[in-house]
């Protein structure tokens, strides 16, 4: 019967339905399945299912994402953001690979294969030795280098305070010069032929 204020619409979700769809893994490990894999096994699976886009060493091919490298580049002009250099939580790596990879065949990897692939990506980033067995038990033995690299949105303090109020309307600057032109780069698609 509908409780007061409710409409009585929908039906109760069954446990096996929730299990089928609820796969998210939180940073504290909630949702992490039982299983294990190491980098040596992971290397073979990676070569078979991942390397055609991400490269044999997770270094990325062409425009496809690089999963390894980029250590200590985040304050450089062109930072290389990878699982090793950037991602704060290893749970995200497991969650995303299990849910959405391989690209075009998402959700096809058994849990042990996901553990092995994650181990191989960690190994490619020099974050574990080749004999390290990644499992739900050892998962948090791995330190993510950029775990403390994130701050919660602070625009209110750093930006809004200085960009609020009546702006200048007349004689706001002495000289205005063109400093950069898009036509010099010339990377805009030809709009006659583009689709």
């Amino acid at each position: 019967p509908a409780i007061a204020g409710k409409f009585g619409l929908g039906r109760t979700a069954l446990p096996e339905e929730i299990a089928a769809w609820d796969g998210d893994i939180s940073p504290n490990g909630t949702g992490l399945p039982v299983g294990s894999g190491d980098a040596l096994v992971g290397e073979e699976i990676f070569a078979d299912k991942c390397a055609s886009c991400h490269g044999d060493f997770a270094e990325g091919i062409g425009n496809w994402p690089k999963l390894a490298g980029g250590a200590d580049t985040l304050n450089h002009d062109d930072p290389l953001k990878t699982v090793g250099s950037y991602w704060p939580y290893l749970t995200t790596t497991f969650d995303y690979i299990k849910r959405s990879m391989p690209y075009g065949d998402a959700g096809s990897l058994p849990d042990d294969e996901v553990y092995a692939i994650v181990a191989y990506i960690l190994y490619s980033n020099d974050l574990i030795e080749d004999d390290f067995v990644l499992s739900n038990e050892t998962f948090f033995d791995v330190e993510m280098p950029n775990a403390n690299g994130f701050i919660v949105d602070n625009r209110a303090e750093t930006e809004y305070v200085q960009w609020t109020g009546e702006p200048c309307m007349q004689d706001c600057k002495d000289v205005v010069e063109v400093t950069m032109r898009a036509l010099v780069l010339d990377v805009t698609p030809d709009q006659a032929g583009a689709a």
Binding site: D24, T92, D95, F150
Partner: peptide, 12 residues
């Protein structure tokens, strides 16, 4: 949930 998932689309 009790907290954020910190999924790929809010970390990477």
């Amino acid at each position: 949930m009790d907290g954020p998932v910190e999924s790929r689309e809010e970390t990477s």
